[in-house]
Design a protein around this nucleic acid. Structure first.
Length: 655
RNA sequence: UGCGGGGUGGAGCAGUGGUAGCUCGUCAGGCUCAUAACCUGAAGGCCGUUGGUUCGAUUCCAGCCCCCGCUACCA
């Protein structure tokens, strides 16, 4: 990375969204990077903010009888409060409704328009009047129905403004290929190149006010507002003074890292670079897409109700531990899963057992042996040299791992040194040195342990600002040395601790008692003579191992199979594999879409008794709702319906 | 269906053309300064599968299988 300055951005979050762990993760990641660079004496600028234009804000405002701006003002605080709570140290918070930002967007639009990089064109689309929305042909359901409300749409001609993005397709491909590290991780660059294999169209950058009024008005046509993405991306330059404070802008641009989630890759690796190219600005140094947090195996989503609320996690376990967990647990660019179990496990082993407990050991021992005053060391032996080497390796490697965005690895090297600290105490056994009266050696051990903690605390400070300040304070440091410890100074190797007086402030990270599963009363063995009860003393996890692919009868009966009679059948227009069926299931009539058109004609289907899955979640296929699934056997290009052997009424349960 | 990601000891992950490593968990032992913590040792892996390149592949190449995400004329 550029060693003269560091500018990091998060996406600007849609103000109407409710903050979730994804927002929190990106922002914490940016915060930690920013704090590290500040501690390494690199001038740093950290920008985050909110995207405040668009349909949803307009709609929400109407519902709440507010102006859109009032709506934004009332919701933006949700982000601002969360960032405060999560100790986010952003240097500025940009809102796209900020007048400066709007002015910059308009100036850029005008400039591109003047240079013929934006042009007006007419095209045909489909408009749904009740929804007030415009759709292209491929968005529509069968029969040109609106995908939102399923009502007929009207074919209309509409004019819009387009940015000549296609001009830059080849240039962008070349740029990505010749700049490894521009898009990270590397496989995301490949993904973008894959996207660029297809012809790149021009980007529609306007919306007619008749459809959407809440946006930045085009300077050259008052009937339109700017497309939200075009508006939003510009925050990255308007937020650091582009066209308003050139000196500031020149200081920070190009950005060191645009941090994004993998879901907004294309906008950042295609739209944004081509926009910058057209504007005539340097490319970002790096665009980094991280993965998603999953719970269990599923993607986190509101509809599944498994969202982990970052606010709640902080209240329960503390901000610092939460920040540590997010960074330690997510490997480079991959998805990771968030479970409370994993959180508690890592908290206990890394923070409580290894780091917190080491601090307790050292503080209590020093208080007892030297009244808390950190002694001066004598000559180092092999154990000391080994210990110093361990932590110095972390000091040396952390900046490198930071540049490679391997934050989790960086934290791991520090934790390794902490574990070495526990080992060191075991080996040198200061408690027996004290008994034997080997004071010199004892002082060396106490000093070296404290020094190890000071270095580890300094290295971890950007991740856990509060807790590490607490740790440094316990070691007797105060002022800047505790509040803003300089990583850059660790290399000097001076003795800053001897003579300082330690303070016992209690457990740094209290162990969390994991929820212990209920143990059957009879199983607690009193003697560990036989092997079998020993197993029982470790309560098994709830799921008993079952042979792969085998299900229980209960699991089978979750699927409700029923007979059904086909009443009508017709082909689905525009689809050559699908039939739309009306079926009778007992009293009930249902609609079903079946992929059997290549094997059965509609006429053959009518009157047949078939077997269906009756409790399948309804789904839309080609826009038509299918309320169940019929069973059929398919083999070597042949397909035969499953039916019953003889007469049966419809709606009969099978099992 | 198409595109992308991934398959390494019980779990989560590193890693390299040449004796396969870490954390957690399990088992045995040790210590007592400490937050029932800490330390030592052990068990446990044909590094998804098949074929190729190579003196040698977990690592390179090709095919296949499985899992995940988006997508789809799957339901």
């Amino acid at each position: 990375m550029n060693d003269k300055k560091f500018y990091v951005s998060t996406p600007i979050y849609y103000v109407n969204d409710k903050p979730h762990i994804g927002h929190a993760y990106t922002t914490i990641l940016a915060d930690v990077l920013a704090r590290y660079h500040r501690r390494l004496n690199v001038p740093t600028f950290f920008l985050t903010g909110t995207d405040e234009h668009g349909q949803k804000v307009q709609k929400a405002a109407e519902e709440h009888h507010m102006t859109p701006q009032e709506q934004c003002d009332s919701t933006v605080v949700r982000f601002q409060e969360l960032w405060k709570k999560l100790d986010i140290s952003n240097d500025d918070f940009i809102r796209t409704t900020n007048p400066n930002h709007q002015r910059v967007v308009r100036e850029i639009l005008q400039d591109l328009y003047d240079r013929d990089l934006i042009y007006k064109a007419e095209y045909e689309g489909h408009y749904c009047v009740p929804c007030e929305r415009f759709f292209t042909g491929k968005d529509l359901e069968e029969g040109e129905l609106c995908p939102e409300c399923h009502r007929p749409t009207a074919r209309i001609m509409e004019s819009n403004y387009f940015f000549r993005m296609s001009n830059y397709q080849q240039w962008l491909i070349d740029y990505i290929e010749t700049h490894p590290g521009f898009i990270q991780p590397a496989f995301r660059a490949n993904e973008t190149l894959g996207f660029l294999k297809q012809p790149l169209g021009d980007l529609c950058i306007s919306r007619p006010k008749s459809r959407l009024a809440w946006g930045i008005e085009l300077p050259f046509d008052a009937d339109y507002v700017c497309y939200v993405w075009f508006d939003a991306l510009i925050n990255y330059i308007s937020g650091i003074g582009y066209r308003t404070d050139e000196a500031k802008f020149r200081q920070w641009w190009p950005v060191s890292y645009h941090l994004i989630g993998k879901d907004i890759l294309t906008t950042h690796t295609v739209y944004w670079p081509t926009m910058l190219k057209a504007i005539g600005l340097e490319m970002p140094q790096a665009i980094f897409a991280h993965g998603w947090w999953l719970t269990g195996r599923e993607k986190m989503s509101k509809s599944r109700g498994n969202v982990v609320n970052p606010m709640a996690m902080c209240d329960k376990y503390g901000v610092d531990a939460f920040r540590y967990f997010l960074l330690a647990e997510m490997p480079l660019g991959q998805d990771a899963s968030f479970t409370e179990d994993a959180f508690v496990g890592r908290y206990n082993s890394d923070l409580a057992n290894d780091l917190g407990n080491l601090l307790s050991r050292v503080v209590k021992m020093t208080l007892r042996q030297t009244d808390g005053v950190i002694p001066a060391p004598e000559a180092y032996g092999d154990d000391e040299k080994e210990l110093v080497a361990e932590i110095d390796q972390a000091v040396a490697e952390l900046p490198r791992l930071l540049d490679e965005m391997k934050l989790n690895r960086g934290l791991e090297t520090v934790m390794q040194a902490v574990r070495a600290g526990n080992r060191y105490l075991e080996k040198t056994a200061p408690w027996s040195l004290a008994k034997k009266g080997e004071t010199g050696k004892l002082h060396t051990v106490l000093y070296c342990s404290a020094e190890l903690l000071r270095k580890a605390g300094t290295l971890l400070h950007p991740v856990m600002p509060h807790k590490m300040t607490e740790l440094l304070t316990a070691l007797g440091l105060s002022g800047e040395a505790a509040a803003n410890p300089a990583i850059a100074a660790l290399k000097n190797g001076e003795n800053v601790l001897s003579g300082k007086k330690m303070r016992d402030s209690g457990a740094l990270f209290l162990r969390i008692q994991p929820a212990v599963p209920e143990v059957p009363a009879a199983s607690a063995p009193t003697e560990k003579t036989s092997a079998a009860p020993a197993k029982a003393s470790a309560p098994a996890r709830s799921e008993a191992p079952a042979p792969v692919g085998v299900i229980t009868i209960d699991e089978f009966f979750r699927t409700q199979l029923k007979t059904a009679r086909v009443l009508t059948a017709e082909r689905v227009k525009g689809a050559d594999k699908l039939l739309r069926l009306q079926i009778e299931v007992g009293e009930e009539t249902r609609q079903l879409v079946a992929g059997v058109a290549q094997y059965y004609t509609p006429e053959q289907m009518v009157g047949k008794t078939i077997v269906i899955v009756a409790n399948l979640k309804p789904a839309k296929i080609r826009g038509i709702e299918s309320q169940g699934m019929l069973l059929a056997a398919k083999h070597d290009g042949a397909l035969k319906l499953v039916t019953v052997d003889g007469d049966m009424p419809s709606g009969v349960t099978i099992g």
